[in-house]
């Protein structure tokens, strides 16, 4: 069953792009993901204002110094990843790999710093409203940082595949966007937990 036509078509056949929509999809995903954090932040604010008891017994506040160093490292990694992307645009693959790895290391240091902070705290998940919120927020954010580092590792490995960037750099662009997202979330989180005491 085929079309038999001998005359000329009266129209130009239309096309739509089959693929290459990953970045659009990823941006939509990030918008949606930010709402979960937004929900947690709102929960934090509401409980902070209304809860009858806030800090657990024996805790009067939370140390800011180490988290601040951590924050500076994470935020500056956002600038570092930007340079990695620029190297890639210029097709300087080794430059990209090295700077990309630096970003990963900075992210890993942040996770390590979080681990140290968690292990030194005297309260737990189940010690009252503050304990619950603190571990939920930092834990959920930490999970995103770890995911980001793993995805960066994947991109690093894939950069060695010949011809990996022939069809665009969408993977790297997406991960970089994700990293900025994780950073912005952390800044809000830092203000909420450490600055607003």
């Amino acid at each position: 069953m085929t079309t038999t036509k001998s005359e000329v078509l009266l129209h130009t056949p239309g096309h739509v792009k089959h693929d290459g929509h990953n970045l659009t999809g990823f941006i939509i995903f990030l918008c949606s993901e930010s709402i979960i954090f937004f929900a947690f932040f709102v929960g934090y604010g509401v409980l902070k204002i209304t809860a009858p008891t806030w800090y657990p017994d024996g805790v009067s506040g939370i140390a800011v110094r180490e988290p601040l160093i951590n924050t500076i490292i994470l935020v500056s990694s956002s600038f570092v990843i930007y340079f990695a992307e620029r190297y890639l645009h210029k097709k300087n693959y080794w430059g990209f790999r090295i700077v990309w790895l630096v970003t990963m290391l900075m992210g890993s240091y942040f996770v390590y710093g979080q681990y140290v902070e968690w292990s030194e705290l005297t309260f737990s998940l189940s010690s009252g409203v503050f304990g619950s919120l603190f571990y939920l927020l930092t834990g959920f954010h930490g999970l995103h940082v770890i995911t980001g580092i793993l995805l960066m590792g994947l991109m690093l490995i894939r950069s060695f595949i010949p011809g990996n960037y022939d069809s665009g750099e969408m993977g790297v662009e997406s991960i970089s966007l994700f990293w900025h997202f994780v950073d912005v979330i952390w800044i809000i989180l830092f203000i909420l937990i450490y600055v607003w005491q």
């Binding site: 949606s32 709402i35 979960i36 929900a39 929960g43 998940l125 189940s126 409203v129 939920l136």
Partner: peptide, 24 residues
């Protein structure tokens, strides 16, 4: 996309309250 994550956030907190003794 705008609404569902709020429920997910609430459900995560409920899950912790139910199983890990948090106090949201």
């Amino acid at each position: 996309l705008l609404g569902l994550p709020a429920l997910t956030g609430g459900a995560i907190m409920l899950f912790f309250d139910l199983n890990f003794g948090t106090s949201f």
